[in-house]
């Protein structure tokens, strides 16, 4: 009989400890972070690649280390790309420290120029080398370095030269959120 009581007491003790430990681990719904889908859970280094701008200059992406880089993959024939471009221009215009590196999958520079002619503001920014546009007809940069097959897709690179965010499709560039996010970098 004595043994029986010992077993009962031991069992109750185990339950008590279990309950105490378990109640500590029950997740509190309010602590689950909201999270922005596009933010990367690991900061990734930007792979090194070269690109040729519209005026024939060869640049290396590493030349822009220390700046905020918006690395945009686009094409003039792509509707959502056209949609987001003006908003991107605005952001670049308002942030002297940011650079837009726009890698186009168009067939020729003529297509790109035709596209740009619709946005007068872009001329000045391109001249100041705050916007850099490059033709990647063979998709060597988009596909080989970033697995990008569909357009538009955009990577945001911080000053430490790490990719911290990816925006798929026509991005929320007009909204205040992304602007303040970029300002905060």
């Amino acid at each position: 009989m004595k043994n029986f009581f010992i077993i009962i007491v031991a069992a109750l003790l185990i339950f008590a400890i279990g309950y105490y430990r378990d109640s500590n681990t029950i997740p509190n719904s309010s602590t689950i972070s909201k999270g922005v889908d596009e933010s990367l859970s690991v900061q990734m280094s930007v792979p090194s690649f070269k690109f040729t701008t519209l005026n024939g200059e060869v640049k290396n992406i590493q030349d822009f280390k220390g700046k905020i880089i918006i690395l945009n993959f686009w094409a003039s024939w792509c509707g959502p790309c056209m949609e987001e471009f003006p908003a991107m221009l605005k952001i670049i215009a308002s942030m002297p420290d940011a650079r837009l590196v726009a890698i186009s999958s168009d067939d020729s520079t003529r297509d790109i120029e035709k596209f740009l002619s619709k946005f007068k503001q872009s001329k000045e920014l391109i001249k100041q080398q705050r916007i850099l546009i490059s033709l990647d007809q063979k998709r060597e940069i988009s596909s080989t370095h970033f697995n990008v097959l569909r357009l538009p897709e955009t990577f945001i690179v911080n000053r430490k030269f790490k990719i911290i965010k990816k925006v798929v499709g026509s991005g929320p560039w007009v909204q205040g959120d992304i602007q303040s996010f970029l300002q905060s970098l």
Binding site: L40, K166, V168
Partner: peptide, 27 residues
């Protein structure tokens, strides 16, 4: 690869390129 969120799941290789989840890491 994106910030933790309940509906972010592991994906198949094809889904990576179809749903725009390609990154230098997936390369």
């Amino acid at each position: 690869q994106f910030e933790k969120s309940p509906d972010r799941e592991w994906v198949s290789p094809w889904q990576v390129v179809i749903s725009g989840q390609g990154t230098p890491q997936t390369v």
